[in-house]
């Protein structure tokens, strides 16, 4: 804020939109995280596009997402093929109608582990967990925020260039993951009604 003749106008403006503006002034990472944390359980449908250099057209996946704090995460892909990924603790099961269910331990796969930790960190508003792996940068206000995550670890950096999360208030609306070669995946989330 600057103090001068123009600031009077500013003060007036502040007074006009007092509620929102007050919130905007306090808007920082911790505020965002506490909003996310308040949100708790997630039920949403998603629409994901993967834009890969190797492909002429993006891969499209649709389905639903479920998150229950602290560590239950479920991604149900309905299109193009049915496939269910479910994580509890560090156990991942992958189920398809045709094949046997596969079970994995996410700690066996460092990249997967980082992925899951990131998703959980965002959905649960765990600032500490996110700051352990990323440099964080928050832009925008509570109405429309975007959080950029850049990996700290160079090994992860070889695979992920950055992750950009966009949202409104305590809701995540999209997660964009960009790889160093320009490939990216955009996960768009629309909360179920009633959420």
């Amino acid at each position: 804020m600057t103090f001068g003749p123009a600031s009077l106008f500013g003060m007036l403006l502040v007074a006009l939109v007092a509620g929102t503006a007050a919130a905007a002034l306090d808007w920082d990472l911790e505020a965002l995280m506490s909003r996310l944390e308040e949100k708790g359980t997630y039920r949403a449908t998603f629409h994901q596009t993967k834009h890969l250099d190797a492909l002429e057209e993006p891969l499209v996946l649709k389905g639903s997402l479920l998150y229950e704090p602290p560590d239950h995460l479920k991604k149900v892909v309905t299109q193009p093929h049915e496939k269910i990924y479910e994580i509890r603790g560090d156990r991942l099961t992958i189920a398809t109608p045709e094949e046997d269910t596969r079970r994995l331990t996410i700690t066996d796969h460092p990249l997967l582990q980082t992925f899951v930790a990131t998703m959980r960190g965002i959905l649960s508003g765990d600032l500490g967990a996110l700051e352990e792996d990323y440099h964080l940068q928050l832009q925008g206000g509570p109405d429309q925020w975007s959080l950029r995550l850049r990996p700290k670890d160079s090994q992860i950096g070889e695979k992920i260039k950055r992750v950009v999360v966009r949202g409104r208030e305590g809701s995540v609306l999209s997660v964009k993951t960009v790889e160093p070669n320009g490939d990216y995946s955009l996960l768009e989330i629309s909360p179920d009604r009633g959420q």
Binding site: L111, F115, K159
Partner: peptide, 13 residues
Amino acid sequence: LDELRAPTSLVTK
């Protein structure tokens, strides 16, 4: 292609 759709596609690419 199926592997590319998976969350771990980065590994196989």
